[in-house]
Design a protein around this nucleic acid. Structure first.
Lengths: 346, 346
DNA sequence: CTGAAAGCGCTTACAG
DNA sequence: CTGAAAGCGCTTACAG
């Protein structure tokens, strides 16, 4: 009530200097003698003074805030991965003295919602933003990039003429799928199906392509009836299996799911049909979701180091915001097989 | 690059009015004729203009941002509950047109970290804040309240002379513990132990007190050797059981854990000693963690509706920020038993 | 109904 | 080394 009302004029008066000097001390200007500096700092300390951030921003400083935008229709809360992503960004931003404003976009097609997102940038609430879960091509994000905002996009590749304000991270899904197929092939599987992710997202496509390539490399046939639609959500895995079982007499011996959530859904559906994993059918997931280890059966999956990716993305974003660099940034994320209990030898 | 540079002066010029009028339109003043209003709105639309939020705040408007502070030493990312809490606050704040700045406090004893938290308030980055995971009495939070900031604290009760800027939510842990003990008693258990939570937090105390009361009410004896220390984290459940088994020949037939994470840890330890749940020992958790249903065995627990609590807390906080009310706010959260598979009849 | 002007709390050339 | 002054982009009494 009292201390909160202190401003730089007041500090200047109390320290017997001008506001200019107070500002110089706060901003660590070199041309302030140690003595003056100490004097001012003492008053600042004593009165618990913190410069008003709006005034600072208006005068040209950065907001030191980045936006984190999650494009996710389902209940974000249900997914541990999302949690990890949020916390990961917050913690790494914090290390650089930045804050994170998190925003959830339920529907990237809703004009109102998009306007709201743009507003956050144009209002200058944030110095830059990270998008997670976007489609391969999302017009409003492109618009933001055209406006010059510094933007990081997870799961995207750089074009031939990348803008300097675009940062991108891509998963090595090709490698992941090759490992999955190789492992299954090694266990003796030849009848391998796949439940796809959202094909509007880069990972949806690249995972499917990776699957096809890997199958070919291993000399295995892709049975189109075992290529199932999905969208990265648990329920789509469930539905995919329901549909497969109701329509196909001839089942695969193994299925690779676009991610672990999808795998969980698939296993749930299999259980309902009294099919056991891995006894009757082997399942491999993707991501290494926090739940996968605890799952019953423990899920064999392709681990992706999201935390490290987000750390790098956050750091690059902040570096770009502070204009220390103008080079283009494309982060590549490797993935590796984690063997657990959801696949068996045949 | 271009549109982003538009300001109210420019809009005024383009619409042929003064900045005052532009501002009146933006802030929905009633004394602007529909015609003028439309004219200005059209230009605003056309140029994709959004008022600079720092300027607005500096001129006296609210930042429309609330802080969410999670006091959590362990890896926040590992806990689904935390995720739900974060997302819950974000979504409800969003409904009121507010943004959320999330901040993680790893150590509430670290002076630097506390200073950082205070800074967020004093800098006027946020209009108010919610604290989750705080100790029963946290000096720096009290200081913030003394300064007049609007603050919501989860897991706290109101004192006799509550400040109007303090909002509090408390769990009905007494009821929860009574239900847990009653259920176990009903199954024939008389030898019931408990793994406590963090006794520095209100819930840690009230859960333990509830356990004692409930045992007395059911005419059951509390064996001090079966009252185990914990801190709400998974590992403390594990450690508690390790210690119990190594020191006690005489084991309880049922244990109530301070929360589900602790229960998971306890079950993990029991498994390592080849003790089965519920065959050899019954376990009840607390919270109904997202994982509890999927856990093996599915965990019988006391469900707490965190999402609803946070919804109310967020709404109250924003209402208070907008000074629509001056009355005191204490949110009470009920809880109820969810029977699954971790307890057996004896 | 509407504009000119003061003010919000900073930062940073500018001048000395 | 340091202060006076302009300026950042808004809002809101004030006066008409």
């Amino acid at each position: 009530m009292k201390k909160a009302d202190i401003n730089s004029t007041e500090i200047a008066r109390l320290a017997g200097v001008s506001r200019s000097t107070v500002s110089r001390v706060i901003n660590n200007y070199s041309n302030v003698p140690a003595e003056t500096r100490e004097k001012v700092l003492k008053v600042i300390q004593q009165y618990n003074y913190f410069p008003n951030v709006s005034a600072q921003v208006l005068a040209g400083k950065r907001a030191r805030t980045i936006g984190l935008f999650l494009i996710e229709q389902g209940n974000v809360s249900g997914d541990m991965l999302t949690n990890m992503l949020i916390v990961s960004v917050i913690e790494h931003a914090s290390e650089h003295g930045y804050y994170v404003l998190t925003h959830i976009i339920r529907d990237a097609k809703d004009t109102e919602m998009i306007k709201n997102v743009k507003e956050i940038f144009f209002q200058r609430r944030i110095d830059g933003g990270i998008f997670i879960g976007a489609a391969s091509h999302e017009p409003f994000i492109e618009e933001l990039i055209d406006e010059g905002f510094v933007i990081g996009i997870v799961d995207q590749t750089l074009s031939d003429h990348p803008e300097p304000n675009r940062i991108v991270s891509k998963y090595n899904n090709d490698s992941g799928m090759k490992q999955a197929v190789a492992y299954l092939a090694g266990l003796g599987h030849a009848r391998i199906g796949v439940i796809n992710g959202d094909m509007n997202r880069l990972s949806g496509q690249t995972k499917y392509e990776g699957y096809q390539t890997a199958m070919r490399m291993c000399g295995l046939q892709v049975n189109p009836n075992w290529v199932l639609d999905g969208d990265f959500h648990e329920n789509s895995g469930y539905m995919a299996i329901q549909k497969l079982i109701s329509q196909e007499a001839d089942l695969p011996t193994a299925i690779i799911a676009a991610n672990d959530s999808v795998a969980f859904g698939a296993i749930r559906a299999l259980k309902e049909h009294n099919l056991r994993v891995p006894e009757d059918l082997s399942i491999i997931g993707f991501d290494d979701h926090a739940m996968s280890e605890k799952h019953h059966p423990a899920l064999t999956t392709i681990r992706v180091d999201f935390s490290d990716m987000l750390k790098r993305m956050t750091t690059y974003l902040i570096t770009k915001i502070e204009q220390k660099t103008l080079d283009t940034k494309e982060i590549t994320v490797d993935c590796s097989l984690v063997v657990r209990e959801s696949c068996r030898r045949i």
